[in-house]
Amino acid sequence: MVAIEDYVSRVEGTCGAEKDVIVIFKYEKKDEAIKRILAKAQLKNSIAGIIFELGFGDFSFRLYSSGKAIFRSIKNREELNGILDDLLL
């Protein structure tokens, strides 16, 4: 059974007043994770095909080809896990 832990290396809350969350994908799985996310999320903007501004439901986030994503205004880890579940699995 595939789980988000198969793709996600770690999640970091950002230091600052913003409630942004950074998701760092496992290096060996980052390309697959990016492919899965791009297939499900709505593409709003892309720069050189390596940085993607995306929408998914009410959420907006940015995905980087380095294997990191930044999600904005996430309430808690459960909410993030729900989004990652829908995007990755």
Binding site: T14, G16, E18, D20, I22, I51, Y64, K68
Partner: peptide
């Protein structure tokens, strides 16, 4: 942009 957005962009 938040500072974190800027940092991730540059990191890329």
């Amino acid at each position: 942009l938040s500072s974190h957005d800027v940092a991730l962009f540059l990191d890329n």
